[in-house]
């Protein structure tokens, strides 16, 4: 038997809670069991079988919260086969085991290190240059895109099981991530430039120069693995000191 469409939608909704009980031992294990449970309930009408299935999905699991939806979908695909006696009970687990690392890498690499920071920088630039409508628009586009991908991956996992890899490979997400990272770096540069122009206009040319010097020093310091928080305090206090100095020099004239 196969899982009805309404149940699949319910599982997808529950995938959004995958990390609710992230814990040190099982990581997303409870979240995974919570997400897949509606499907298991459909597949195993015998309570003992359902409990056994739930228990095996409580094994340690960790993936990226977006790409994990492909694994939840694929695990249902395999559980359908287990319920039909076409596959041993270890099948869904082996699937989860093999895919969790690589799909975490795809998700971390594309979403966390590419798409989300790109949209973060875009939203920041939009806010600075155009105000809140640009912020709302950036967030809207990000979420339409990300939820569509989450849903598509879930469906692809469910329909095609192991073949989801082929579908995922066709999206060439790592190549897109590289482009987004380049584009994001440009956005940050534009923000620094706009910030410098605006500081020069509001306070004076010295303040604009200070912003650019701080950006350059920041790039170097962070490149040498300076910690963010101390670097932030250093920038704040040095910037304020330069400002005080500028005030004294101007006042003395």
């Amino acid at each position: 038997m196969s899982v009805p469409e309404a149940t699949l939608r319910r599982v997808f909704w529950r995938c959004l809670f995958l990390q609710a009980a992230w814990n040190r031992r099982g990581m997303q294990n409870l979240g995974f069991a919570y997400a897949i449970d509606p499907a298991l309930r459909r597949l195993y009408s015998d309570p003992a079988l359902r409990s056994a299935a739930l228990r095996r999905h409580l094994g340690a699991f960790s993936c990226h919260p977006y790409t994990a939806s492909a694994i939840v979908g694929g695990a249902i695909h395999h559980e359908e086969r287990v319920a039909a006696g076409q596959e041993p009970v270890a099948g869904p687990l082996a699937y989860k085991q093999v895919l969790q690392g690589p799909l975490a890498a795809v998700g971390d690499g594309f979403f966390w290190a590419g798409l989300r920071p790109f949209f973060g920088a875009l939203a920041a630039l939009g806010t600075l240059a155009l105000g809140w409508p640009a912020l709302v628009a950036s967030l809207l586009v990000y979420n339409v895109l990300h939820l569509w991908l989450r849903w598509t991956l879930f469906r692809a996992g469910y329909r095609s099981g192991d073949e989801v890899l082929t579908r995922l490979a066709a999206l060439s997400l790592p190549a897109w991530a590289a482009r987004l990272r380049d584009a994001g770096s440009v956005l940050c540069g534009v923000i620094a430039g706009i910030g410098a122009l605006s500081a020069a206009g509001r306070i004076g040319i010295g303040a604009g120069a200070l912003l650019l010097v701080s950006a350059a020093a920041g790039v170097v310091a962070l490149g040498y693995r300076a910690r963010l928080l101390p670097t932030t305090y250093a920038a704040l206090s040095l910037g304020t000191a330069v400002g005080a100095l500028a005030q004294v020099v101007r006042g003395g004239r």
């Binding site: 699937y95 093999v98 799909l103 795809v106 890899l165 790592p174």
Partner: peptide, 18 residues
């Protein structure tokens, strides 16, 4: 184990940056 599994081998190359 990974070397013996075609699925694992395919998965490993999926996320590689260019």
């Amino acid at each position: 184990e990974a070397a013996a599994s075609p699925l694992a081998r395919a998965a490993m190359t999926l996320a590689l940056p260019p």
